[in-house]
Amino acid sequence: MATAPVMKESPAAGALLRADALAVTYQGRRGGPPARAVDGVDLDVGRGEIVALVGESGCGKTTLARTLLGLVPPTAGRVVFAGEPLGYGARALKAYRRRVQLVLQDPTGALNPRHTVYDAVAEGLRIHGGASDERAAVAEALARAGLRPPERFLLRYPHELSGGQRQRVVIAGALVLRPELLVADEPVASLDASVRGEILALLLSLRDELGLSALVVTHDLGLAWNIADRVAVMYLGRIVEAGPVEEVLSAPRHPYTRALLSVLPDSSAPPVVLTGEPPDPTRVPPGCRFHARCQVLAAAGPVHPEAATACRTRDLPVLPGHGPHTAACHWPTAEP
């Protein structure tokens, strides 16, 4: 019977950002049980690495990303950046957010319609300071984001730009501070299919040319395949499978990952229709938190009663933040 490894590996030497036993709990409604939005997560992002965080809506991936950005303080565990635990004082957070920048999924909502492109990109410099030549820094950021020549865009307003150009402006606003890591929350979800590839290619070029790291939050495993070095699949507040993107997406070990992959347009596997909705985070089920919707358990549970009992009753350990392909699954097929 397969289980996730109990012993954690030490983080990779090149780890830039690390979630260490991270948990975020929200107070329940009307005195009810608390909601465990993030429920014990170890996750590393190495220097010059792109990691995709994948899962359904409501699985906790956006809360995890906001916690890694310092926008939500953890209930337990810690965020470690460049070997130092994140501090939550105003000065520490300001210094941290210069080095770690957020790219939102909706560029229209992220940009003030009354501000020119120049003002939108320069805003970070004006908050954090440190640019001897603001105009040159803004022009360089726009050029790096693919808006060339930058002089054509400086005095334009968001409504004068296409969706792809607006997203490039948002990326330029992050790049102007010369960060070490980007957290991109569904960076192409609001864009037409024709420009999604351009934005993904831009993120890859930034990694290759600047050594920039990125955590890309997405529900789209196809996007993860195209852009990520590693992928972490999240379900109900936990990472349930993680590893190099080629291994995870070519030979998934967790039934949830297999279900997500089965509905991709180019999948050769029959689509898996998961029954019901993800459980309420205020009532996380015992055992494997996916067992109530697991297609493997439903089909083969009577044949393997020991594994079925473990799925329903035995909790699984937190997966290590870095290392080889691992899955939090009691089922024998979790082993390669």
Rank of each mutant, 00 (worst) to 15 (best):
V248T: 05
T257D: 02
G211S: 13
V231E: 00
R258E: 11
S194G: 11
Y256H: 12
E198R: 15
D185T: 14
E241W: 02
L200Y: 11
E209Q: 13
D229T: 07
I239H: 00
A184E: 01
P278E: 08
R258H: 10
P281Y: 07
P252W: 02
G197M: 10
L264G: 01
A189Y: 04
L202C: 08
V272W: 04
I227V: 15
D220C: 10
L191C: 13
V217L: 03
A201C: 14
S268K: 14
A214I: 08
V240W: 04
V216P: 06
L260P: 03
L202P: 03
A184H: 00
P244Y: 03
I199A: 10
S267C: 15
D192Y: 06
V284S: 09
L181K: 04
S213C: 13
V188W: 04
T275F: 08
E180R: 14
P179E: 09
E277V: 12
L181F: 07
D185A: 12
G197Q: 09
R258D: 07
V183S: 00
G276N: 11
A214V: 11
V231G: 00
V188Y: 05
D208Y: 09
G243M: 05
A193Q: 10
R253T: 02
A201G: 15
D266N: 12
D280T: 11
P270M: 06
P179S: 08
P271I: 08
L203A: 05
L212A: 05
L260R: 02
G276H: 11
S194C: 09
G211R: 11
A232R: 00
A259D: 02
P252L: 02
L261K: 04
A189E: 04
S194R: 14
E241K: 02
H254D: 09
Y235M: 02
V195T: 12
L182G: 09
V272E: 06
W225D: 03
S205L: 10
E241M: 00
P187Y: 10
L236W: 01
I199Q: 07
Y256D: 11
D208A: 15
A214K: 05
P179N: 08
E209F: 10
I199E: 05
P244M: 06
I239R: 01
L206D: 00
L261C: 09
T282P: 06
G237V: 03
I239W: 01
P255L: 15
L274G: 10
S194N: 10
L204R: 15
G276M: 13
E277C: 09
L236Y: 05
T275M: 11
V240G: 05
T257A: 03
D229R: 06
A214M: 15
V284P: 03
A189P: 01
L182E: 10
L182H: 14
S250R: 14
V272S: 05
G211D: 07
A224R: 07
V240R: 04
G211W: 08
G211E: 07
A232T: 03
A232I: 03
P271F: 06
D280Q: 12
L210C: 06
P278W: 03
E209T: 14
P278T: 08
L191G: 09
Y235K: 01
A193H: 07
R207T: 12
A259E: 01
P255Q: 15
Y256R: 12
P281A: 06
S268R: 15
L204V: 12
L249R: 01
V240K: 03
P270S: 11
S262R: 15
